[in-house]
């Protein structure tokens, strides 16, 4: 199974991008599963379930940072998606805490940014952008070509190793190259690790334990199916 983790500020077009990607994969008879992680409200799981008839889940991270929450639940989620027979697992996360980034090794990290967001946004989002594989720029239909090119240059200045893809996620223009890249991904193994160093803190993720899955951690924990609970060392 291939893992795609998609992060980005609120309403940048993450769901719109994933909708086009998933539609194109399904047209090619691939099987996908989808998890949405948000703080307190999301309905993408219901929409994708109705639209594509694929297995979907959602998790509210509540008091946890969504990226921390994703570390906790990802182990369970991979097992769930594999049991559902998925070949592609998509995780959409709100990425609200700009100190962390949700991307793990062996996955494809998509940072979704909107072209309309102002020229300094790439400077503000930190590891969400710099640790991604691809920066997907949405809403290119809303600005002039010149402004689009300057925005792109700003991203490349901040994150020179991140590949930039411009899309119009309303019509699905520019999606094909993303689909090709996703199809070419390797399958995930069973020792996924966070890519970045999380910020200083007090839980075991915060102190640098990068193993995926709540079983490997102490402090405030969050399995996919249950509520947040505490486990001391």
């Amino acid at each position: 199974m291939k893992l795609i983790i998609c992060a980005g500020p609120a309403t940048t077009g993450k769901t719109s991008v994933l909708r086009h990607i998933i539609r194109k994969l399904i047209e090619k008879d691939h099987r996908a599963a989808y998890l949405k992680i948000d703080v307190q409200f999301a309905e993408e799981d219901i929409k994708f379930q109705e639209e594509f008839r694929i297995p979907t889940r959602k998790v509210y991270s509540g008091e946890l940072c969504p990226d921390h929450c994703s570390v906790m639940v990802l182990g369970d989620t991979i097992k769930w998606a594999q049991k559902e027979g998925a070949e592609y697992l998509f995780v959409e996360t709100a990425g609200l805490c700009l100190r962390c980034s949700p991307y793990v090794t062996e996955s494809l990290g998509l940072a979704v940014l909107e072209a309309t967001s102002g020229i300094n946004l790439p400077l503000k989002v930190g590891p969400m952008l710099s640790l991604a594989d691809i920066a997907v720029i949405t809403k290119i239909d809303r600005i002039s070509q010149a402004e689009r090119e300057v925005f792109r240059a700003r991203i490349q200045e901040v994150a020179p190793d991140v590949r930039v893809r411009e899309v119009n996620a309303l019509y699905g223009i520019g999606i094909d190259p993303l689909v090709r890249q996703i199809e070419a991904l390797p399958d995930v193994g069973d020792s996924l690790k966070l890519r970045g160093n999380p910020p200083v803190g007090t839980c075991s993720i915060c102190v640098g334990k990068k193993e995926i899955g709540w079983e490997a951690h102490f402090g405030v924990l969050r399995p996919l199916d249950n509520q947040t609970f505490y486990r001391g060392q």
Binding site: T116, G118, R142, I143, S144, A146, E147, V150, F151, A153
Partner: peptide, 20 residues
């Protein structure tokens, strides 16, 4: 489009675009 969204000064915007 009859507006830009960028808050860069004109000279800086054009300089970046000319380089790009």
């Amino acid at each position: 489009h009859t507006t830009f969204l960028s808050d860069l000064p004109v000279i800086e915007f054009l300089t970046i675009h000319a380089r790009v």
